[in-house]
Design a binder for these strands. Sequence first.
DNA 1: TTAAAAAGGTTAAGCGTTTAACAGAGAGAG
DNA 2: CTCTCTCTGTTAAACGCTTAACCTTTTTAA
Lengths: 342, 342
Amino acid sequence: MGASLKEIAERVGISAASVSIYLNNPDTNRVSAGTKDKIDKAAEELNYRRNLFASSLSRHVSKVIGIIIPTNIPLFQNVYTNMLLSGVQKCLAGEGYSLLFFPSSASTSKENVREQLRHSAGCDGYILFSTGFCPMDHILLNIRELQDTGKPFATLNVPKVPETINQVIIDDLESVRGLEFLLNAGHKKILMVLGRQHGEHMQLILSKYRLMLKEWGIPLDNDLVIFGNYSHEDTYLKVSRFLTSRRDITAICCMSDLMASSALAAVKSTGMTVPGDISIIGRNNSLYAVLADPPLTTIDLSISEAGFKAAQLLLDSLENPSISRNIILNGKLIERSSVNEN
Amino acid sequence: MGASLKEIAERVGISAASVSIYLNNPDTNRVSAGTKDKIDKAAEELNYRRNLFASSLSRHVSKVIGIIIPTNIPLFQNVYTNMLLSGVQKCLAGEGYSLLFFPSSASTSKENVREQLRHSAGCDGYILFSTGFCPMDHILLNIRELQDTGKPFATLNVPKVPETINQVIIDDLESVRGLEFLLNAGHKKILMVLGRQHGEHMQLILSKYRLMLKEWGIPLDNDLVIFGNYSHEDTYLKVSRFLTSRRDITAICCMSDLMASSALAAVKSTGMTVPGDISIIGRNNSLYAVLADPPLTTIDLSISEAGFKAAQLLLDSLENPSISRNIILNGKLIERSSVNEN
DNA sequence: TTAAAAAGGTTAAGCGTTTAACAGAGAGAG
DNA sequence: CTCTCTCTGTTAAACGCTTAACCTTTTTAA
């Protein structure tokens, strides 16, 4: 198929080595100007393009980063993950790196990562994404697998990862900053709309939640916590069902803007108003929040920035594998019009 | 670093070939049961994982598909592209293929694709995405580049590609089906909110638009066409500005749900109601449409299905490079509550 | 005039896997 | 007792590219 260096070399009448030398460093003085022209011409005519794999094999460097997302639900459907990816890609592409996404059919995050890594040797490094619903033992196993590759890697918002590992995390306090804001605004009966119940992330958030209620002297009411799966249908259904039985809440705190938008729709469908009757706060500062009516107060988690930084961390440790860095990103509250004082 | 076959072989006391043979085909009878166990043990202990690049080089097959998106604006930020990607990935991952995204710093789509392809030899095939704002000559050049690789490829919603090329397209009529629906509902003064003005896609849509107006005997009014860049801010601004000068329209037809949501916000901000004063129709059937208030009538383009099919096409032609197929997908109208009879 | 340096290459080994071809030892068939 | 399988391997080349080391010939400097 594609022409090889050797074919170019033959056509020009020189050795493949010379062609390689020139193509990899056009300014070289080990190839004469005339020969350079001939190489260019031959390469053009033969449609030469360098074989990434052969080149990587020889150089021990591939300029390819493996993206490890420990789930086999379809990729590219989740705003949160997409924003992370966007940041990662922006940084990596800027430095000339390619991104590789591996297939995996395994359904548990444990097996899934193992399978993705199985045929991955050759990448220069990896970025491990958090999916939010990995239990802690799986997380630890995933990290272990990654370490075993012997390649540098960084984790992206994976909770409770040892400090010796390159990581960027979005401070967990942020998860309840929305709650804090609502409490400050005088709300006492607040419905929490969280993500998947099992998974380390949610456990952290839950404990923060309980702690904060305690600080404010508000009694725990387990009915006021809804676990969901971040989808619209699910959230709409659960919030609607909740509202048929109880109307005493004055605010809803959601773990994503999408869920906040769904909650908003559910509230509106009962005839209640936002923020008149019920205040709503989201999280992520995604487009969903700005497009909602009323626009949603939310927490900007600088998600794509987190992705960018994780990629930076990885590239750093490609240069200097011995150092490892942790970056903690803080969210900031974006006030719009979905929250009233109570 | 990562252990190699040779290291396993040494530890077990056999040749690397045997290890390879066993690992690639665990049922082989060219390795004894005892040896198999030893290999497993050694592979486990040494954290062996196969080097994708070396393996691909040797086998002439990599199980890697290159994703070519002719733009260097950050990836993973556009719902439309993400939905396409999602379908592509779902199909490819299901068949054990990895996805490779190449970097490129070039800003014109022409140079951009060339650069992405430059170091790509080794992939089994490619999928070329449409960005919607490529001019025709760039498209043709891109296709040419792809052909020059000698590898199979498929194009995904790239307009006017020769029939001999694997492609899935979303029928262009769909682009104006929203318009048709509004006309049928009795609207005559319809604001069109389109995408980028230059680019083959938009030219096609424009001509369909003009044709349809002519059929309905409605005079052309160039002020009723707004070109945008698919972003919220831009759309909101342009529609708002439009509404300050003219209020005689009864409907808005948008090329994406996001733009429709932005238009909706702009309309609401003037105090007018949807669909009371102005009807709005979107396109894509994305979450934006279902979350909007009122939920938007839209055109379901089965985008992720298009991605899936393109991947299927590619895999087919990996098996049988001689055949090529075209798939045309039709959109269907999803009626919700943003359009009134006029 | 001579030594050193520059110019313009070449050779050959190596990267980690795969695979066609080969081969020795034992078992079973005739 | 020989022939042919079957088992269980091994060898060596190949994939396409890179790179350290080497080699002429020509130019330059002193």
